Simulated scan of single mutants.
Amino acid sequence: MRNTDFDFLTGAWTSHQRRLVKILDGSDEWYGFDATLDCQVLLDGNGVFDVLRSPERDLEGITLRLYNPDEKTWRIWWASKTSGGMLDEPVVGRFEDNVGTFECDDTWNGQAIRVRYRWTAVDPEHPRWEQSFSPDGGQTWEVNWTAEFARRTG
């Protein structure tokens, strides 16, 4: 049976990205930038690969998503051109009610954290993604990166 969870993301996108200037520092100062995303859904819906690019920020990164039908969970890895050829620790989760929530334990600047990605696919023409960190095992969360997408035309 074909997995359709990430079908909404297939194709070419423009996006506006926002990131906190200082993460886990009590900052509320953000900077924004534009980016493109090119996404393919593969492996009968069980694999998703995309490339995010922002020339203005000298940012290029890839995301690999793989679905395990036995566990009914996704694993999502991120790597950027500054990550030294390494994939980040995968966030793990699933979609419920058109919202995908994916989490893992990781570190940020030597501090143990919980990472959460959240996709809201309620409007497949304008999906939204956010990344949050929790320094206290998921009791409180700081959103530190958001992205809003619109389909590229032409």
Rank of each mutant, 00 (worst) to 15 (best):
L52E: 15
R75L: 03
G45C: 11
S134A: 04
D97M: 02
V115M: 05
L43E: 03
Y67T: 02
A112Q: 15
R116H: 10
Y67M: 01
W129R: 02
W77E: 11
L42F: 01
Q139I: 07
V48K: 05
V48L: 05
S80D: 15
C104E: 10
P124F: 02
S80M: 02
L43I: 02
L66V: 14
Y67R: 02
V48H: 09
A121W: 03
C104I: 03
L66R: 13
G61T: 14
Y117S: 04
F49W: 12
R65P: 14
F133Y: 10
V115L: 06
T107E: 12
T63N: 15
E96S: 08
D123A: 05
D136H: 01
R118L: 10
V115N: 06
V115A: 01
G47S: 04
A79I: 14
G100D: 11
P55V: 00
H126C: 10
D123W: 05
A147V: 12
R65G: 10
T101E: 15
L87M: 13
T140N: 15
K72G: 02
L59E: 13
S83M: 05
L64D: 11
Y67F: 07
W129C: 09
G137T: 13
W129E: 11
T63R: 14
T146K: 05
D105S: 02
V48C: 08
R128V: 13
R118Q: 15
N98F: 00
W141C: 04
H126P: 04
